[in-house]
Computed example of a mutant assay.
Amino acid sequence: MQYMITGATGHLGQQVVEQLSKLTAKENIRLGVHTPAKAAKLKDAGFELAAVDYRNIDSMVTAFQGVDVLVYIPSITYNVQDRLNEFENSLTAMQRAGVQNLVDVSFIADQANNPFQMAGYYAYLPARLASSGLNYAVVKNALYADPLIPYLPELIERHNVIYPIGDQAMSFISRTDSAEAIANVAVKPYLRDHGQNYLLTMGQNYNMVELARLMTAATGKQIGYAPVSVQEFADIYRAEGDGDELASMYQAAAMGLMDAVTSDFRHITGHAPQAMGAFLKENYQPQ
């Protein structure tokens, strides 16, 4: 079987490469990258590289030749139409290249009433794939726990978590756990051949008081919870380039749309995901 991972040099993509390498030989894995010259280390490590431009169908047809299972990790654009166009181009290229099996990486925010700016894309995926003729599974991630680690120094300085979600909870998963599940779905036909729709989460969700207590325990610094408004949150982080997008996601969380918990990770891997407290303690390094 020939597997291909798009977005292979991204944060999640690198983890999927590592996890898939535990389940099949490197020569069975092709890595889709935007600029192969910038991924020389992966080539040196024994992986085959292929240039993938989501806007160029012909390039993807070439890259997808001989692939049995495609793990599709989308680009990071926050433009819904661009993301839809990239996905449709990829489906066209898969059809022309004869790829039959797809593991599509998605996100928890896919409800019809979800105000997150990218929710329209995530809601589109399962309906679109149902008529695609592919063998596929949609693997939705809860919020990644990983960005909390570099965020901790700021929260320590603020003395508070400021997410504008009130008394609601959010679900999380680590990228490592996500990647392990995605790799397992890719190599096990019974997990991906029937249009399955998975949601990867930790064993529980966390309201912000609970999350703040776990952060306090991990850092040894007192962190509480003092939510700002959605608009204030957007204003604080707009200069970093994603303030409005993040604010819309937390607006969804405040509506109770980001708190689902499933046992899908255990169903796929056979063991429990890492809990938030253990994740924070393992990864936080005092500055």
Rank of each mutant, 00 (worst) to 15 (best):
E210H: 07
E210I: 06
E210M: 11
E210S: 10
L211I: 03
L211N: 00
A212L: 08
A212T: 09
A212H: 11
R213H: 14
R213D: 15
R213P: 05
L214H: 07
M215E: 08
M215P: 06
M215T: 06
M215V: 05
T216D: 00
T216E: 00
T216G: 00
A217I: 10
A217S: 10
A217V: 07
A217M: 09
A217W: 03
A218H: 05
A218S: 12
A218P: 09
A218L: 12
T219Q: 14
T219C: 11
G220A: 14
G220R: 11
G220F: 15
K221D: 10
K221G: 01
K221A: 13
Q222W: 03
Q222N: 14
Q222V: 12
Q222K: 14
Q222L: 12
I223Q: 03
I223M: 07
G224S: 13
G224Q: 13
G224D: 15
Y225G: 12
Y225C: 14
Y225H: 11
P227K: 04
P227N: 04
V228D: 03
V228Y: 02
V228E: 06
V228N: 05
V228S: 05
S229K: 07
S229I: 05
S229G: 09
S229F: 09
S229T: 14
S229A: 09
V230H: 06
Q231N: 12
E232G: 03
E232I: 01
E232A: 11
E232K: 10
E232L: 01
F233P: 00
F233D: 05
F233C: 03
F233T: 04
A234W: 06
A234F: 09
D235T: 14
I236N: 06
I236R: 13
I236D: 11
R238H: 10
R238Y: 04
A239L: 11
A239G: 05
A239P: 03
G241D: 04
G241L: 04
G241E: 02
G241Q: 07
G241I: 04
D242W: 04
D242V: 08
G243Q: 07
G243K: 07
G243R: 06
D244I: 01
D244E: 15
D244Y: 09
D244R: 00
E245G: 06
E245T: 12
E245N: 09
E245I: 10
L246A: 08
L246W: 02
L246D: 05
A247H: 07
S248A: 12
S248W: 00
M249G: 09
Y250M: 06
Y250I: 01
Y250W: 14
Q251I: 04
Q251K: 07
Q251F: 09
A252E: 08
A253I: 03
A253G: 14
A253V: 03
A253M: 10
A254M: 01
M255N: 08
M255P: 04
M258T: 03
D259Q: 15
D259F: 01
D259I: 02
A260G: 13
A260R: 15
V261C: 12
V261P: 08
T262M: 11
T262C: 12
S263E: 15
D264V: 04
D264F: 00
D264L: 02
D264W: 00
F265W: 06
F265C: 05
F265P: 00
R266I: 07
R266S: 13
R266A: 13
H267P: 07
I268M: 05
I268A: 07
